[in-house]
Amino acid sequence: MSEESIKKFMFVNRKAPYGTIYALEALEVVLITAAFDQEVSLAFLDDGIYQLKKGQQTKGIETKNFSPTYRALEGYDIEKLYVEKESLEARGLSEEDLLVDVTVLSRAEMGNLMEEQDVLLSF
């Protein structure tokens, strides 16, 4: 694939897992995108941060626990995971509560990062 056709894809996650299917199906797109040699990043804002909460146990709701997949992203060369600081704090969470390593950004830094993208997908 030529240089020109590499685009910056950002997946913007603003929804909590399980209550709706969006988080799971968004993750499925992320995995596919990895195969296209694009520049991929994931942004977590608002309730989307809950997708990354450690210790998810879904047996009782008879739903697949897809949270381990976030840890597998590294293996697909998807290492840019950004979390918005105010959203994290508003939920009483810190980086230690998350199941993967993330980069914590201020609102303005997140806004600037969005500006730089070619394709923004949110579900």
Partner: peptide
């Protein structure tokens, strides 16, 4: 078809607009 078609749309199109 597969999800690759969505990624391809992101690559090929000048603009990708989401409705949801």
């Amino acid at each position: 078809s597969g999800l690759g078609q969505l990624v391809e749309a992101g690559i090929q199109a000048d603009r990708l607009v989401t409705f949801g």
